[in-house]
Design a protein around this nucleic acid. Sequence first.
DNA 1: TCTTTTAACATAGTTAGACTATGCAAGTCT
DNA 2: AGACTTGCATAGTCTAACTATGTTAAAAGA
Lengths: 111, 111
Amino acid sequence: MGKPSGLVQGTLDLLILKTISLEPKHGWAIVQRIQQVSAEVLQVQQGSLYPPLHRLEQQGWIKAHWSETEGGRKAKFYSLTRAGRTQMEKELANWDRLSTAINTVVQTNEA
Amino acid sequence: MGKPSGLVQGTLDLLILKTISLEPKHGWAIVQRIQQVSAEVLQVQQGSLYPPLHRLEQQGWIKAHWSETEGGRKAKFYSLTRAGRTQMEKELANWDRLSTAINTVVQTNEA
DNA sequence: TCTTTTAACATAGTTAGACTATGCAAGTCT
DNA sequence: AGACTTGCATAGTCTAACTATGTTAAAAGA
């Protein structure tokens, strides 16, 4: 039924871009950060992560290189490209525009 | 490319419920109100409207009756049921929860 | 009067972005 | 040795938008 789903559809790209804009991270850590910063409200499933990650890379907005985590494991670290930063800003502006509009509609009490 | 799509996926039900909670409206007018109140930011396509409308009716959250518009045309007017109001409040709370979480993530500048 | 536009409802088929389920590999912990 | 955690990845499903299309009737315009 109305499962209080863990994401708002269409916002994952933005969340990813923002997260790695602060510092390069590997997939696993990206998910961790999104969940932690959102106080566990946003839940990103494993299977939901890699497809967008690969797509963003192919679009040239992020790039990957293999490296090591603090724990000494190898992992694929993603960082934002120049174009990616522009894209992030565009998506952020769009999110603001839309979420503001939605808030206006749900808060307006005139028919 | 990144078409600045006219909706945030998953929010249409809420927008519909809210709109008819203020006063019963027919489908066409629901779309008009959403677009007007949002200053044309939110764009609901014709084909996107009726499926959710029928689904919401089947779930018992809204109910329909044929009547006439101001212009003298017959149209199906939808109004909110008791259960629908509860549902609207639930979806509104969920939207607040999620959109707030997203805003936190995109505004937080600590990795 | 004829035609076009607008209001209004509706369905079929497609696409996109999430989901679940599953699998592999390597390191840690008991 | 076995279980759990970290970490990457794909295949298949589901849902909610989208586009395209069709119908009916009234209004507006030629």
